[in-house]
Simulated scan of single mutants.
Amino acid sequence: MAAPEQVGAYPRPPALVESSQLVRVEALGQLLAKSRRSLRVLETFHPPTYYLPPEAVRQELLLPSSGASFCEWKGVARYFDVVVDAGGPAERRLRRAVWTYPEPTQAFAALAGWFAVYPALMDGCWLDGEPVQPQPGGFYGGWITSQVQGPFKGDPLHSELV
């Protein structure tokens, strides 16, 4: 096994890197996404965030959510709720658990329409079979595995990280 990547050495502005690792995401007892094709966003002091192509995501489980956010590097993000049994008496919902950049900046054009998830809100996320630990802090979507080494932004023990 290769030495873990040091997230402190990731670039700023972030890099966009293709990956063929097996990504699996489960939410509300359902397989939400599975693919060997993803894009990793690598940003200084952040564990990678994985973006999955639209065909790898069960979009019938996604409903558009209100609001948006702005990233100085990627542009405007739009959010989705993950919903099972939509409209029924047994409806279950994860609010704003998935996001996409419909029209990202030119540097991140490859992300257009691809989906990312907050691992902390999912039943589980796996990378090549290894369970993912969510990046600390409620706002971040990074995936912590044995392949990356911190310190990570969002960790209260490293609040000095910007």
Results as ranks from 00 to 15, higher is better:
residue 119 P to L: 01
residue 53 P to I: 06
residue 80 F to T: 01
residue 106 Q to F: 11
residue 49 T to N: 10
residue 132 V to N: 13
residue 65 S to I: 06
residue 108 F to L: 08
residue 71 C to I: 01
residue 58 R to V: 06
residue 86 A to R: 15
residue 140 Y to N: 07
residue 142 G to F: 12
residue 65 S to C: 04
residue 144 I to T: 10
residue 47 P to C: 11
residue 61 L to C: 00
residue 76 V to F: 12
residue 112 A to H: 00
residue 132 V to T: 08
residue 47 P to H: 05
residue 58 R to L: 04
residue 106 Q to D: 14
residue 111 L to R: 07
residue 84 V to C: 00
residue 142 G to A: 08
residue 84 V to W: 00
residue 49 T to Q: 05
residue 79 Y to N: 06
residue 135 Q to N: 04
residue 63 L to N: 00
residue 78 R to C: 01
residue 103 E to P: 09
residue 51 Y to M: 01
residue 68 A to C: 12
residue 98 V to Q: 00
residue 122 M to R: 04
residue 73 W to N: 06
residue 92 R to N: 06
residue 48 P to W: 07
residue 81 D to C: 11
residue 131 P to H: 11
residue 131 P to F: 11
residue 145 T to N: 09
residue 106 Q to I: 05
residue 147 Q to P: 04
residue 125 C to D: 09
residue 73 W to L: 10
residue 141 G to E: 09
residue 118 Y to T: 09
residue 112 A to E: 03
residue 91 E to L: 02
residue 98 V to Y: 01
residue 91 E to Q: 15
residue 61 L to Q: 06
residue 60 E to M: 00
residue 107 A to M: 06
residue 137 G to E: 07
residue 127 L to P: 05
residue 80 F to W: 15
residue 52 L to H: 04
residue 66 S to C: 05
residue 143 W to C: 10
residue 117 V to G: 03
residue 145 T to S: 09
residue 104 P to N: 11
residue 63 L to C: 04
residue 58 R to T: 09
residue 116 A to E: 07
residue 67 G to A: 11
residue 120 A to I: 02
residue 114 W to I: 06
residue 80 F to K: 04
residue 133 Q to W: 03
residue 108 F to G: 09
residue 101 Y to F: 13
residue 77 A to Q: 08
residue 90 A to Y: 09
residue 56 A to E: 04
residue 138 G to V: 07
residue 47 P to S: 06
residue 98 V to R: 02
residue 99 W to G: 02
residue 104 P to E: 02
residue 63 L to S: 12
residue 74 K to S: 07
residue 78 R to H: 14
residue 147 Q to S: 15
residue 120 A to V: 04
residue 51 Y to L: 12
residue 58 R to Q: 14
residue 113 G to W: 12
residue 47 P to R: 02
residue 77 A to L: 08
residue 88 G to P: 08
residue 110 A to P: 05
residue 66 S to L: 13
residue 56 A to I: 14
residue 140 Y to H: 15
residue 124 G to D: 08
residue 132 V to M: 10
residue 79 Y to T: 11
residue 123 D to T: 05
residue 62 L to R: 03
residue 84 V to E: 02
residue 123 D to S: 09
residue 81 D to E: 02
residue 52 L to Q: 10
residue 105 T to A: 13
residue 124 G to M: 01
residue 85 D to N: 15
residue 94 L to E: 13
residue 73 W to H: 15
residue 79 Y to F: 15
residue 75 G to D: 07
residue 101 Y to K: 10
residue 130 E to F: 04
residue 123 D to F: 03
residue 99 W to N: 05
residue 119 P to M: 02
residue 124 G to R: 10
residue 117 V to W: 01
residue 123 D to N: 03
residue 123 D to A: 08
residue 134 P to W: 11
residue 125 C to Y: 02
residue 98 V to G: 04
residue 76 V to W: 12
